[in-house]
Design a protein around this nucleic acid. Structure first.
Lengths: 227, 227
DNA sequence: TCAAAAGTGTTCGGCATACACCCATGG
DNA sequence: CCATGGGTGTATGCCGAACACTTTTGA
């Protein structure tokens, strides 16, 4: 079976920067490549898109095939189009950012073109295949600016969480420390972080558990843009 | 001449949302299509990327070919990948946002696959070909959030400009009015908008001309992130 | 009883907002 | 001299930053 065109067509892939949070730092999910090129090197999960699926669908599918991850937050980053970024042929990749609850995927199976899948701290990354380092850096930059504007941190957390956990994510992503009292105040004043009444015990005094209320968030947003 | 692949490859195009400012409102540059499909309909300038150029290079080339525009600010928006977005074959487009000094291009020549090129107010757009309305809306949304964070308004203005002109751009893009005194204060306090000492006369009292200082902007930014 | 983490309130400065009067120019 | 638009300062309110002591739990 072969496909012929009048003009040359680039191949199109998707690559996914999957961020997780392990309780202290920000992590990225990488796969060890099982096929040429860059066999045995670490890379972002991804692959060629099918002719009858959108890039989003392709990104979801590749994630499922290579890592077993499903039902997560995925958002398009941008396309990367350098002419020589793949040694096989002209390949354009559409990169995505995904946020997952890393706890749910403590052990990742690997599969398909991936020999192995593993979480890495963003501060201690191996050498990456292709231009995946550049993609990852772009994703990180976007994550940093986005977390200041939108409540995306909650995609990295359990449905209920403590304020300290939220604060840890902001600190890990933005690389700075915040005052516990001011952070708590700022979050509660937003109006869409709701105490559940439950407590969470780890060490020391138990912390209150909160939940993110999507509805209240939309309400608050429409109030503000109405002004 | 034909090109054969083992797997089906989508075609890849670029499309460019070119914003201009005519002194009162925000405009978009559209071309009237000279070829099938959607002949004679208005569309974003763009076309198929060559196998040996990046998407950015392709976007620049198509803009030059279809509208004669050169040397402007261009930035990638995102890819649009719906399966049926082009009736000919599977086509993925990588969309770009461009900002130009509309004055420099009061008359646009058209050319190549474009019968005609024309500025339209973003508030009074014709029916657009393909999914170009969706692309345009996405670009507008991105422009609105970006203008709040970065000094991109100056790409729409002459190298020297009055404060009132800057204010008009912010008002046109964000769709709200600002107090002249407060706006002036906010801009000057930024530190990278420098008075040239020249005056600009239109009606009434002449206004001071300012210029945007790239170096100072970078300085100010590094100061702030250092804190 | 000790270590670890959580809960909480006040003060201060800076930035955004609201607002009005006078000035320079062209016709 | 009049119409048009430009330049500017002050008062107020809100938000973010700094900062310390007390409480709850498990070991």
């Amino acid at each position: 079976m072969s496909y012929t065109y009048e003009y040359p067509h680039p191949a199109v892939t998707t690559d996914c920067v999957v961020f997780g949070f392990d309780g202290t730092g920000l992590s990225v999910l990488l796969i060890k490549r099982g096929i040429e090129p860059f066999t045995d090197q670490w890379a972002l999960p991804g692959g060629f898109i099918h002719i009858d699926e959108t890039a989003e669908e392709g990104a979801y599918r590749e994630l499922r095939e290579e890592t077993g991850i499903e039902d997560i937050y995925v958002e398009q980053l941008q396309a990367f189009t350098k002419v020589d970024r793949d040694p096989r042929e002209r390949v354009i990749t559409i990169a995505f950012t995904a946020l997952v609850r890393q706890q749910d995927y403590g052990y990742i199976k690997g599969g398909d073109d991936a020999k192995e899948a593993k979480w890495f701290s963003v501060n201690d990354l191996p050498l990456l295949a292709f231009d995946h380092k550049e993609i990852l850096d772009t994703a990180l930059e976007r994550l940093r600016s986005k977390i200041k504007l939108e409540p995306i941190a909650f995609h990295l957390l359990n449905p209920t969480f403590t304020m300290t956990q939220v604060q840890s994510i902001y600190e890990a992503v933005l690389g700075q420390k915040y005052d516990r009292r001011n952070f708590h105040k700022k979050m509660t004043v937003l109006g869409y972080i709701i105490p559940t009444g439950e407590k969470h015990t780890a060490y020391g005094r138990p912390g209150s558990l909160y939940t993110f209320d999507e509805e209240k968030y939309k309400e608050e947003m429409s109030k503000r843009s109405a002004i």
